[in-house]
Design a protein around this nucleic acid. Structure first.
Lengths: 207, 207
DNA sequence: TTTGAAATATGACAATTGTCATTTTTGCTT
DNA sequence: AAGCAAAAATGACAATTGTCATATTTCAAA
């Protein structure tokens, strides 16, 4: 399996090369110093897997990944990083990287490389723990659990759109006072204080 | 490295055992037929990695994973599946699984297992492509675009927690009137009417 | 030191909001 | 038709809210 390693610190690329080539299945064909260089090199060398740092002077690892995958949709790129940054993780996923691992746990790196070569996608350590936060799909809220009636439920949804009681009354063909009563009822059922807390609850727990 | 394999189809567990034990680093210590059995067995055997199917009669792989991780937070569990189901992926992440791979690409399975053993998290094939859809992150909100000052920004965040003006005033060491003025300012900058709309805006556009 | 611009505060005001006790209306069931 | 319970409405009330015009304070530049 032929690798290419990209990092603007030559020390890092050298070390990684040494570590990875301890595995007989792996050869490191090329070391690059920048994203730009990597894109060039990829075209010629077509390595099986690319290992790239994210932060680099010239062209960062994310855009390099993007370019490389544009050249060759079957390319496998693993991004190396020193720490967990939500923003990077996010872009890495968007861009289509096949790995996002921490430099610090390079012990299992060759296994990760091989897994990626085999078509898997690898995330280092605690990175995955972040994902659920990023995709804030909390488990489905059940109105019934709180004895919320359909009408009350509609009210909640309108509050969460920012409507005033008067506007809600119009939409629901109810009197404004009725809406207020409904509101009162919902708030006490959910143990909240005012419509703003209701809206917050809605976005945090329901949708 | 000691493995445990869980699947209600004995044929599958057998096959996996054979495939995986071709790798000299791997031994399969135990085969289980159900999630319930797996939880029991884990307690005794403490395997390094658990490979478990998701769909099973008795106790499904997800709840089994949950239980096992409750027993031993350092446990490594890889979930096996035949197809991509958003709902499963989601729960798998939540539950804290360290892998989610397709049965069909069992070729690279041993590498995946090793990578997981080394602390990585592995996703099979096209699964990751789903993630960005699941977390429908709109592009990052830029406070500067709306000339929101840091203090105003703090206010917004507190409103989005459902605090009243008085509470916000306390938290920010400001007078309640000042908070009201800040509020007024933010609302006009964002072209909103009241704090509830502000909270909605926050959850829809900012976080 | 003076000056000026932010930041912070005040007070008055009208509107909205949530609570509650009490009708009125509505739609059943008998 | 009578009776009844849920749904809808009313009205009174205090609290909160947002706006605005106007101080007061702060703090750095001139």
């Amino acid at each position: 399996m032929r690798l290419m390693i990209v990092d603007d610190d030559p020390l890092v690329t050298q070390s990684l090369k040494i570590i990875l080539e301890q595995d007989p299945d792996i050869t490191v064909d090329k070391l690059c110093q920048s994203g730009r260089e990597a894109i060039e090199a990829y075209r010629e060398i077509k390595p099986d897997v690319v290992l790239s740092d994210i932060r680099m002077e010239d062209t960062d690892g994310l855009t390099a990944t993007e370019e490389i995958l544009k050249l060759d949709p079957d390319a496998k790129v693993i991004l190396l990083t020193t720490f967990l940054d939500d923003e990077y993780i996010n872009r890495a996923l968007k861009v289509g990287a096949h790995g996002y691992v921490l430099k610090q746990d390079c012990a299992s790196l060759s296994d990760s490389v091989k897994a990626v070569y085999g078509g898997q996608t690898v995330f280092g350590g605690k990175i995955v723990e972040r994902l659920p936060n990023l995709m804030n799909r909390t488990e489905k809220f059940k109105w019934e659990d709180y004895d919320i009636t359909p009408k009350e439920r509609e009210l909640v949804e309108l509050v969460a759109e920012g409507l005033s009681n008067k506007e809600i009354a119009n939409k629901m063909f109810l009197g404004e006072g009725t809406v207020r009563n409904l509101m009162s009822s919902v708030l006490s059922k959910l143990d909240l204080r005012d419509r703003t807390q209701l809206a917050c609850f809605y976005y945090q727990r329901i949708v």
